[in-house]
Design a binder for these strands. Structure first.
Lengths: 350, 350
DNA sequence: GTCGTGATTGTTAGCGTTAACATCCGCGTC
DNA sequence: GACGCGGATGTTAACGCTAACAATCACGAC
């Protein structure tokens, strides 16, 4: 790769020698400064191309104090939402000339979060994006005094810290309203992990919508995002449905806080001999690619995770420019498929 | 954070001044060199703690030429396998004191791969891990002459380049053999994208096993990993099953190259009035968390992606030490659930 | 012609770290 | 008592880059 066969990487001065200018002029060309004569610029560019010169980021970082790197600290990256957000973040970061360094928390504790951010600060990243909506990791963020911009994703509006987020309450309200509009007297709810902010947002939106409609608010069933917990909740639901058959408390609709748990619910209801949506209507959340192929295809609420990533980077860049950008939440939308249907007229007990 | 309130980050010399030694001695303490008197070491460590000193990675990288960073170039990170592997990689890298920088390819072209690797080389990462098993991106790898160790994940054994991988052929053979053992005359196959090495491996393993058993080898059905393509394949399969009913070519078993497509197949078969496993047995690949909750729960082949990530980092570290580690493939295992059953005795046409 | 002005280029001094070499000191050996 | 040796420490010089300042030059105004 190197013309002289040596393995040492070549620097500004090598290019300078070849182009017959000073290293500083080369630096100016590389960084697109004005005040370089067109002829000179062209000569330098040719030398750069011929030598295959690439600026050394470490040296640059040392003197400028900027690594053009964004640190992403996250957890649960194996789940659809975070993974999709990562995709959006990376793409937007790369487009802006930044690269993305990732740290994945072992657990959602405050210390884990603090260590991860510290590590990034030590690497002098230009900014940190935190994508974790669980437990104390979030609290840690709230307190944090980092020497770099630190923006949080998906934790809702926060006065202490810039954030981007999909409005979970609106999404949950959409789902709940859809079911009420279909004539269901009320809507049951399977929620996510207790320490998840997203789960809380969906719970709040669901409850608020029920209360606004004057519908009774049933006990929530607890899950942990995974199908197995949805399956357990589905069984409970089936038992409740059987117990309440013919009464005014009939169970005919459920809003499940994510699609994977909804899959478990679907499966459990089927196993218990209940038909969806014949007996019970089910709505999920996220719109994972598979859910159009569940049995039946799932009505759900779509979140635009990629957009979330894009906006996250946008916010980072604004901060780096010193602007105080106020971001509005991204709005989710309802995707109606086959798992919801109008409530049957309640057959009175004989 | 800084004692003097200034915003400038503090360096070796600040610590040195405080401890009453030279900056070099501090450097020695920081890097754990021997030949530092215990008393001095202790004094320096106290100064470090008091000042909250953190070494500057850029400066260190500049002089050592090592950033203690591994670059991961990947695509399709939103899919289960790659995401899970990323998890394993990051954890292992962090444990070894490396951080992980990720680049996600926009497409699987050779130029995209080349650009990504170039970018990493420009950032002087210590090594690059390539996690893309598609099309020309793989070919690009084969040719590549990178100035840093470049190891490939999941592309099978490669003479030109160190790799770690799960043996796809063994997995496919496992699935196929399972179905043959259940008494099915042959096994149909829904494959993945044409340019995916993993899809190819599974195809090869399936065919080889059929041939070894002297079973007829049906045409493969083509998919693209996503549920929708599985759905289409499922419809075709149902049509074939109807057409062949009562003949010797009856369709009773299918091996689908991943779980998501298997979900589509399940759905299509159900819609066409065929029972799984009553009429047709289905086996998937990957063992995604949801597949235990499909209807019916899916028999599949589990790949240990996290292990893959771990071994990837192991290989990187070995390379950095200058060792030529030869890695064995990770072996997948069969997980039997409810989507497979013994072949019914073929009811002769009346 | 002289001077100022602005565009272009060159020179110098770090950024914070490690590597290489120099220094100093104490101790055992002959 | 001189010598050598090795452990502990300090000094100096890079690493490749950018920022700040200095120098040069051409050109127009007076």
């Amino acid at each position: 790769m190197l013309p002289d066969g040596s393995t040492r990487s070549l620097g500004l001065s090598d290019v300078a020698a070849r182009a017959g200018v000073s290293h500083q002029t080369v630096s100016r060309v590389v960084n697109g400064h004005p005040n370089v004569a067109p002829g000179t610029r062209e000569r330098v560019q040719r030398a750069i191309a011929e030598l295959g010169y690439r600026p050394n980021t470490a040296a640059r970082a040392l003197v400028t104090g900027s690594t053009r790197t964004i640190g992403l600290v996250t957890s649960h990256i194996n789940q659809y939402g975070p993974a999709q957000t990562l995709l959006g973040l990376e793409k937007a970061a790369r487009a802006a000339g930044y690269s993305l360094s990732v740290a994945i928390l072992d657990d959602d504790s405050e210390v884990a979060m603090r260590e991860a951010v510290d590590l990034f600060v030590g690497q002098s990243v230009d900014a940190v994006v935190a994508l974790s909506t669980y437990g104390q990791a979030v609290d840690a963020l709230r307190r944090f005094e980092a020497p770099v911009p630190l923006i949080a994703v998906q934790v809702g509006r926060d006065d202490a810290r810039p954030t981007v987020w999909v409005d979970q309450e609106v999404g949950a309200a959409l789902a709940t309203r859809h079911l009420l509009d279909l004539g269901h007297r009320t809507v049951h709810h399977v929620t996510g992990p207790g320490d998840s902010l997203e789960a809380r947002g969906r719970r709040v939106g669901w409850r608020r919508e029920l209360e606004a409609a004057g519908a009774p608010v049933p006990e929530v069933l607890c899950g942990d995002w995974w199908p197995s917990s949805g399956f357990a909740a589905g069984r409970e639901l089936a038992a409740m449905a059987r117990a309440a058959r013919g009464t005014a408390d009939e169970v005919t609709a459920v809003f499940v806080a994510n699609d994977q748990m909804a899959l478990g619910v679907l499966n459990a209801l089927c196993e218990e001999g209940l038909s969806v949506p014949g007996d019970i209507s089910v709505v999920g959340f996220d719109d994972v690619p598979e859910c159009a192929y569940y049995l039946p295809p799932l009505t759900t609420v779509r979140q635009d995770f990629a957009e979330l990533g894009r906006r996250g980077v946008e916010l980072v860049l604004a901060r780096l420019r010193g602007e105080e950008l106020e971001a509005d939440p991204v709005l989710p939308e309802l995707v109606v498929r086959a798992s919801t249907a109008p409530a049957r007229l309640m057959p009175r007990a004989v």
